[in-house]
């Protein structure tokens, strides 16, 4: 017991002034703080009704940029090669268009995707980019396989991200 007392840290007691001992001024200043906070607007976002507007630097789900209804992608396969989670699968095919190659099948397994943005960084055509979308819900593994139908997005909708990449890459 003695030993314990020696080791114990002495309690720091300040000599309070009369006003501090009264409690009431301290309580009043506390009330002032709570009342000013009371009238400040809340910071809550009512999620299903309101949504956060994401900045352009946000890495949401990857999408394929579509120009005039066709994808920019030339099926070089670099994104599939660089993907650390092995989430991307590309199958190339030939086309009559100027780019000559196009992805017959382009699949991203959204369960595997880690949103690292390497595919976007490595893409020579600016064809795959990270969008601002962050709501991803699936009820099965199969549903999480996003094919071209789900990945294609018209260029107008992702223009801000493209501008951001031009400026910062």
């Amino acid at each position: 017991m003695e030993k314990f007392l020696e080791k114990s840290i002495p309690v720091r007691r300040k000599n309070l002034t009369f006003w501090q001992k009264l409690y009431i001024p301290a309580i009043l200043s506390g009330l002032k703080i709570t009342m000013t906070e009371f009238f400040k607007p809340s910071v809550t976002i009512r999620y299903p009704e309101e949504r956060t507007v994401m900045p352009e630097s946000f890495r949401g789900r990857p999408v394929l940029v579509a120009e005039n209804g066709t994808e920019r992608c030339v099926a070089c396969g670099l994104c599939a090669r660089v993907c650390p989670a092995l989430a991307i699968e590309v199958q190339a095919g030939e086309t009559e268009l100027g780019k000559e190659r196009y992805p017959e099948r382009f699949e991203i397994n959204m369960v595997r995707c880690i949103f690292c943005g390497f595919c976007e960084e490595v893409c020579p055509e600016e064809a795959i980019i990270m969008s601002q979308e962050y709501e991803l819900v699936f009820t099965s593994q199969k549903e999480a396989l996003f094919g071209k139908d789900k990945l294609m997005k018209p260029i107008e909708e992702v223009q801000t991200r493209l501008d951001f990449l031009r400026k910062n890459r």
């Binding site: 906070e37 009371f38 009238f39």
Partner: peptide, 9 residues
Amino acid sequence: VSAFIQNRL
């Protein structure tokens, strides 16, 4: 009131 004081809804 508690929510408003804590800037919640």
